[in-house]
Design a protein around this nucleic acid. Structure first.
Lengths: 351, 351
DNA sequence: AACTTCCATGAAAACGTTTACGTTCGCGCC
DNA sequence: GGCGCGAACGTAAACGTTTTCATGGAAGTT
């Protein structure tokens, strides 16, 4: 059916070994014969059988991306970043998305066994060190995204949630706000916890005397709405609300609109993520932007690095900075200024 | 390093053939020995080497998705739909996204050669019948998404753009609009052409005497803005604007807002796609929704079907219906009604 | 001119499966 | 009790590569 290396060898009147050498560039072949071989291969439309090659080289030239049940921009940008970088390394991308629950993720991870040379795994709450130990074939390079597992064995790449919230609080303080409330995210969510920690640290630093107001939320729009209504009922109403994600911030805007409050006139609002909607709501939402495609790209770079040097200890922690995007809702709109908290990736090897 | 079938055979004191038979369920093995073999395999954490298996079975159990440079919801929903369905067939998903230009797509398609058992390809303007003929290894099952190639050889699955616009026009007419203008998309875009055709057909049908007003657009927000300003300058201003996608509709809203026109009071607006932003703009945007995940799922089902029966002629054309989503901007808001134009997939075999 | 060195090339093993084909063995049938 | 027969199981070939090793010859060195 399709041409094999033997056909090319016959066509070029050499042995299969020479064909392999000529096509893989290993050297040990005369320029003249190499040329003849390439021509023969082209004539027969020969393309190496990747399974046969993998069988002996033990490399698939494929990396796997294991993602939880994600939607929209985050998903697409992440894949885009990973894919682009993977391609530039000559690697293919095997995607397994929409995993809900530990069982599901474990099955997907096992199914990738032997089909990939490395894995980028975006954590869900149940993906912890024990999970990895149980389901990860050892020796398989892996990069963990947004994970709090520190098992001293794997490479971890995180969004700098802490620095992002910290910088946003600093900005809010800079433009004159003092009574700042925070709407948190799910308790089992790593990002949410980090963001809250950043908020608390910044408050302690910039407004030491001020009481710290943290409301519960779950990243959903309605939880932002509910939190906003709680704020409205407070005796001394905050001057600004900082929601742990944009979706909740949109919920806040809705509640304030209904209550007849002007944003940012009566109360300022800020979010986190810079989802596409952020620039379309009225007033447009000030937020913290995560460069997601860059996150994917960096993860892939990290993974490629790990794959290059087998045996090397992978243990390291990296963080990717965020940008503060100033729009209308925080009360300091000056034409869409963007403040970068961290330009470059920061490596924190833990050994 | 990792256990092979030989190790399992030794452990269970049988031959490799029996191990293969027992694990693949082919029969010809005693329940007792099958059990012993399964235990041995589990004990050694044996997992079959997929490359070795592919080498001889000539199946990779992987399908490829080839996508142009997409963003956001469309991308993620499509992948989700494909992935979920693929998994239910026991297939893996190899993704190659962000292809710009013919060269790029061709390279990606060739690179998948031998790594996949089938392909789902979302067309870009330059992917036509000739492109496929040149770059598609023959015999490889493929499903074309949103494509106007009718080479009488491949399976094609399209969004029913025509029926979607048609139904929206009917709705606009139903609620009393007569002077309806349309903002088109890029000339080389298949969806855009279909949508415009649907608009013209509906106008001819429901408002035969009415002049057909079609303005140029390019799917970008600013082109919607520009088109809206043109509309404002017309002697007899239209009662409704129907943009070929939501992004342009948002541009229209912006222009009308600036001009001090009330939507839908002074002029109604409708879009196409139901992007997430559509429900957040004010007024919320009436639009035509494409069930993208379902599109991906259907494409995958179609492909699985093709892969099951090799040699079967694949030639067929399918269309997936859209939903009319009624929100505020069209002037007939009744609490978010949704009208389904076509519930089931429609098959149009062309032979 | 004899010897070494080096390099291009070929032969063959190895990778881990599946599967066609043989062999063995138990069992029923006449 | 011999015969055939089918089921269970083993042997070995095949899939298409890469890679090690051997071989030969040309070129270089003395």
């Amino acid at each position: 059916m399709t041409a094999t290396i033997k056909d090319v060898a016959r066509e070029a009147k050499v042995s299969v070994a020479s064909v392999s050498r000529a096509l893989n560039g290993g050297g040990g072949v005369t320029p003249a014969t190499a040329q003849r071989i390439r021509e023969a291969a082209a004539r027969l439309r020969y393309v190496p059988h990747s399974a046969a090659r993998s069988l002996i080289t033990r490399r698939t030239h494929t990396i796997g991306a294991l993602l939880p049940d994600l939607h929209g921009e985050f998903f697409s940008e992440l894949i885009r970043g990973i894919d682009l970088e993977a391609r530039s390394h000559g690697l293919h991308l095997l995607v397994s998305s929409s995993h809900d629950g530990e069982e599901d993720a474990a099955a997907a991870l096992r199914a990738m066994q032997g089909r990939v040379d490395g894995v980028v795994l975006l954590s869900s709450p149940h993906v912890d060190a024990a999970f990895l130990k149980a389901n990860l074939p050892d020796g398989l390079p892996i990069v963990l995204l947004n994970s709090d597992v520190k098992n001293g064995a794997d490479a971890v790449l995180n969004i700098d949630n802490f620095a992002g919230t910290y910088a946003m609080v600093r900005h809010l303080v800079d433009i004159g706000h003092q009574r700042i409330a925070f709407v948190g995210g799910p308790k089992d969510n790593y990002d949410a916890r980090q963001r809250e920690a950043g908020f608390r640290a910044a408050m302690a630093k910039f407004l030491p005397g001020e009481p710290v107001r943290v409301l519960a939320g779950d990243f959903g729009e309605s939880s932002g709405y509910v939190a906003a209504r709680e704020l409205l009922a407070m005796k001394s109403r905050p001057q600004a609300v900082f929601a742990a994600n944009d979706t909740m911030a949109v919920g806040c805007l809705q509640a304030f609109k209904e209550a007849g409050l002007a944003v940012p006139g009566d109360i300022a609002v800020a979010g986190f993520d810079d989802i596409p909607i952020a620039r379309y709501v009225t007033p447009s939402l000030s937020t913290v932007r995560v460069r997601i495609a860059e996150l994917g790209k960096n993860a892939m770079e990290l993974l490629a690095d790990l794959m290059d040097r087998p045996g090397l200890s992978a243990a390291s922690v990296h963080t990717l900075g965020c940008d503060i995007v100033v729009r209308e809702s925080c009360g300091a709109h000056r034409g869409g200024a963007t403040i970068t908290t961290t330009k470059k990736i920061r490596r924190t090897s833990n050994r």
